[in-house]
């Protein structure tokens, strides 16, 4: 087998080299500042430039402020404003809800009515509740009534490398399949799911309509292998930028030998269906 040096550009084609850029919807980005470190692209214009450079046509943006702030009302207002001021429509704001806070219902209403958000994002492991808790059921009912997409971030970082004083164990999804059977209209996407979720639990969640994204999907040919197991509309593109290098997710489209239909589903079709269903 002959070897040859291979151009860097062969491993990661520049957008300029791509003849006809297709839609690419990143369902997992965050704005503002990660609480424990500066991320290289935690300035919104810089993040927008990175996403644009890689052909992202829409990015669903939550806020890192959601993790530790109690005043999510202003966090969501800042997020909406930041998305409006940068990216010319690239950034779709996804508000944060903490259902353990008093009057979280007003935050939900403002997300939907004031900011015209299409979805909201939860961080149960930072907010201290479980998906089997009644308060989550009440939240899910309310979000579903409003037709909002619900993103649940199972983790934000590897729990082995967390700050010792701020450990947040991964969210357990075991209660979710049974709960979702009670809310057939709910639209739920798990973010950063594959750091802790593998095998049968993934299939069980997919069977009740849960969507996923690929930011934490590991193993060689991970996307291609998972697409063989899941219903075709369950997996979306997601980068977890700027916490992760965006290129990690983008290269996964290259690592698997995807059919054109799989690529279209993964890069944009599934996200569009999820948002608009």
């Amino acid at each position: 087998m002959a070897t040859s040096a291979i151009a860097l550009s062969a491993a990661l084609p520049s957008p300029a080299a791509q003849a006809k850029p297709a839609a690419l919807i990143d369902t997992n980005v965050s704005l503002s500042r990660w609480p424990f470190r500066r991320c290289p692209l935690d300035d919104t214009p810089a993040l927008v430039a990175k996403l644009r450079a890689h052909g992202v046509t829409q990015a669903w943006a939550g806020t890192f402020d959601a993790l530790l702030h109690k005043d999510l009302t202003t966090a969501n207002a800042r997020l909406a404003d930041e998305c409006a001021r940068h990216g010319k429509g690239l950034l779709l704001p996804i508000g944060a809800i903490n259902p353990t806070l008093p009057d979280w219902e007003t935050d939900l209403r403002r997300c939907a009515e004031v900011h015209q958000m299409r979805g909201v994002r939860l961080h149960p492991n930072y907010h201290g509740y479980k998906l089997g808790d009644p308060l989550f059921g009440r939240f899910l009912a309310a979000a579903t009534d409003r037709g909002l997409l619900v993103q649940i971030a199972l983790v934000m970082e590897d729990d082995r490398t967390q700050l010792a004083l701020a450990k947040a164990a991964p969210t357990d999804t075991a209660p979710l399949p049974a709960l979702l059977k009670k809310f057939p209209g709910a639209r739920v996407q798990l973010l950063n799911a594959f750091r802790t979720l593998r095998g049968k639990p993934v299939l069980d969640l997919a069977a009740v309509g849960v969507r996923f994204e690929i930011a934490t999907l590991e193993s060689v040919e991970g996307a291609g292998n998972l697409l063989k197991q899941l219903p075709p509309d369950r997996l979306c593109f997601g980068s977890h930028a700027p916490f992760y290098y965006f290129e990690s997710a983008k290269l996964k489209l290259q690592e698997s030998d995807l059919t054109p239909a799989q690529r279209a589903a993964l890069t944009h079709d599934n996200a569009r269906k999820l948002l608009n269903s």
Binding site: L8, L217, V220, E221, Y245, E247, A249, L251, E255
Partner: peptide, 28 residues
């Protein structure tokens, strides 16, 4: 650390880094 890790996530650490191209070549 393939095959448990993807090549993509780990190459992304180099391709995505804000460092000179000469540094990337050394690292890769």
């Amino acid at each position: 650390d393939a095959g448990g890790r993807s090549f993509s996530s780990q190459l992304g650490k180099v391709f995505g880094a804000n460092i000179p191209e000469s540094a990337k070549k050394l690292i890769l």
